[in-house]
Computed example of a mutant assay.
Amino acid sequence: MFQVPAVDIAPYVEDGGPAERAAVAAAIDAACREVGFIQVHGHGIAADVVAGLGAAMDAFFGLDLDDKRAYVRPAQENRGYTPPKSESLSLSLGIESATRMNDFFEAFNIGRAASEHAGSELPLEHFAENTWPEVPGFEAQVSAYFAEAGRVARTMTRIFADALGLPAGFFPALTSPSIDVLRMNNYALPDGTDVALDGDLVGMSEHTDFGIVTILWADRVRGLQVLGSDDRWHDVDPEDGALLINLGDLTARLTNERWMSTLHRVKPPVVGGTIQRRRSAAYFHDGNPEAVVAPLDTCVDADHPRLYDPVTVDEHIRAKLAGSRAGRRNSAAAREGARVLQSLR
């Protein structure tokens, strides 16, 4: 039976002892090998911070569509508002979704800005300045959650280093400064939208995440599906108070697929002939754009040949975003795309 493992990471958040941390690292290693998704408890994000994020999302996504469109930014900047049916995540894998239509979710993105790193010349495509909507409390509430999700992401990389037997400084060197983006998603269609509520309707099409690790908060509403090792799609319902953690492509490359960048999608729950609203917020911790990612020597041997050539974080992220946001097929994702096609047979 498919199950997303649950791990309490409190020993890393609250300065647990060596034995406690070793047990957590071993549990994370097993989950990353077998599933690539983890339910994390003991993360330390206060309930009121999560509630503030939800309130900010409700306030913004509750605006009229025309008002939200005022916050659309150029696709390459990966900031601001994304209207429904303007992206197709499956193109980031070099394939088209079986539905042949764009994903119906809407989103709002913020991220690390170049102005936060005075004296550094950072590519504006990855470190664009943020747009903040004129919604009372939005910036403060979202910024508070962004800081906490970033802390959890860095905690996870500390655990990853221990689980992989890497020195403590390995991930800080790979991620400083890091491309970090918070994408707030709303799965609901505006009133009057013309769409058939059939079994092929996709909120967010099949994809893998791009970077190192994703910290996902989501409503406890059906919709998220993960592709298992049996090539079948399985529903994932987050446990109360848990965050969902999943690995990105760069970690799969780094570990030579010892760890999995798991394919996932969102299929909308349809109740009483209408789409049930679902919210999520994904914090993507993607790494320093100049860093080069290649399989670790410890993950390559005669039985596990090197699967990937070296790539910079910048090159990889640009290719993925060109697929999802600019509509160009990503030709460098053959391994991930093949898994999607296998699942659709």
Score class of each variant (00 low, 15 high):
residue 267 K to F: 09
residue 314 D to T: 08
residue 241 G to M: 06
residue 226 V to N: 00
residue 253 R to E: 03
residue 300 V to Q: 03
residue 287 G to A: 08
residue 270 V to L: 12
residue 220 R to T: 12
residue 276 Q to C: 14
residue 307 L to W: 06
residue 203 G to H: 00
residue 323 G to I: 07
residue 249 D to Y: 04
residue 196 A to Q: 13
residue 248 G to Q: 06
residue 199 G to H: 12
residue 251 T to D: 00
residue 265 R to N: 08
residue 288 N to I: 11
residue 198 D to R: 08
residue 296 L to W: 05
residue 301 D to L: 11
residue 201 L to K: 05
residue 258 R to G: 04
residue 240 D to C: 06
residue 220 R to C: 07
residue 259 W to D: 00
residue 304 H to D: 09
residue 256 N to D: 14
residue 318 R to P: 03
residue 293 V to F: 03
residue 206 E to V: 10
residue 277 R to A: 09
residue 267 K to P: 01
residue 226 V to F: 09
residue 317 I to K: 00
residue 319 A to W: 14
residue 251 T to L: 14
residue 314 D to F: 15
residue 303 D to R: 11
residue 310 P to G: 05
residue 262 T to C: 12
residue 305 P to E: 13
residue 304 H to P: 03
residue 236 V to I: 09
residue 325 R to I: 13
residue 299 C to H: 07
residue 236 V to D: 02
residue 282 A to Y: 07
residue 221 V to Q: 01
residue 271 V to S: 12
residue 196 A to K: 12
residue 223 G to L: 05
residue 219 D to M: 08
residue 224 L to M: 05
residue 195 V to S: 05
residue 256 N to W: 06
residue 209 D to L: 09
residue 202 V to C: 07
residue 278 R to Y: 10
residue 327 G to P: 10
residue 270 V to G: 12
residue 240 D to I: 04
residue 237 D to M: 11
residue 218 A to I: 06
residue 206 E to Y: 04
residue 232 R to D: 09
residue 294 A to W: 08
residue 235 D to R: 15
residue 294 A to V: 09
residue 216 L to Q: 02
residue 310 P to V: 09
residue 302 A to F: 04
residue 305 P to H: 06
residue 263 L to G: 00
residue 236 V to Y: 07
residue 221 V to T: 08
residue 301 D to R: 12
residue 290 E to Y: 13
residue 206 E to P: 02
residue 259 W to R: 02
residue 263 L to V: 13
residue 311 V to M: 12
residue 281 A to G: 10
residue 220 R to F: 06
residue 316 H to Q: 07
residue 209 D to I: 08
residue 217 W to Q: 14
residue 224 L to I: 02
residue 238 P to D: 02
residue 284 F to M: 08
residue 260 M to R: 11
residue 276 Q to F: 14
residue 197 L to K: 05
residue 325 R to T: 14
residue 192 G to Y: 14
residue 275 I to L: 14
residue 289 P to F: 02
residue 259 W to T: 01
residue 216 L to K: 06
residue 246 N to T: 05
residue 255 T to K: 03
residue 226 V to P: 00
residue 244 L to I: 15
residue 204 M to P: 01
residue 220 R to N: 05
residue 226 V to Y: 03
residue 232 R to S: 14
residue 300 V to S: 05
residue 263 L to T: 03
residue 262 T to G: 04
residue 270 V to Y: 08
residue 241 G to P: 04
residue 258 R to I: 09
residue 286 D to Q: 13
residue 213 V to I: 10
residue 220 R to M: 09
residue 253 R to N: 03
residue 309 D to R: 13
residue 322 A to T: 06
residue 286 D to V: 04
residue 204 M to W: 00
residue 279 R to I: 07
residue 293 V to R: 00
residue 253 R to S: 01
residue 262 T to L: 10
residue 295 P to N: 06
residue 326 A to Y: 14
residue 292 V to M: 10
residue 255 T to Q: 01
residue 307 L to D: 11
residue 301 D to T: 10
residue 322 A to R: 15
residue 249 D to H: 09
residue 231 D to T: 11
residue 202 V to T: 13
residue 307 L to K: 06
residue 193 T to C: 09
residue 222 R to D: 15
residue 276 Q to I: 12
residue 315 E to R: 13
residue 300 V to E: 04
residue 243 L to S: 05
residue 308 Y to W: 06
residue 224 L to W: 03
residue 218 A to N: 03
residue 252 A to T: 10
residue 249 D to I: 03
residue 263 L to I: 15
residue 310 P to R: 12
residue 253 R to W: 03
residue 272 G to Q: 13
residue 279 R to S: 09
residue 326 A to V: 12
residue 241 G to V: 07
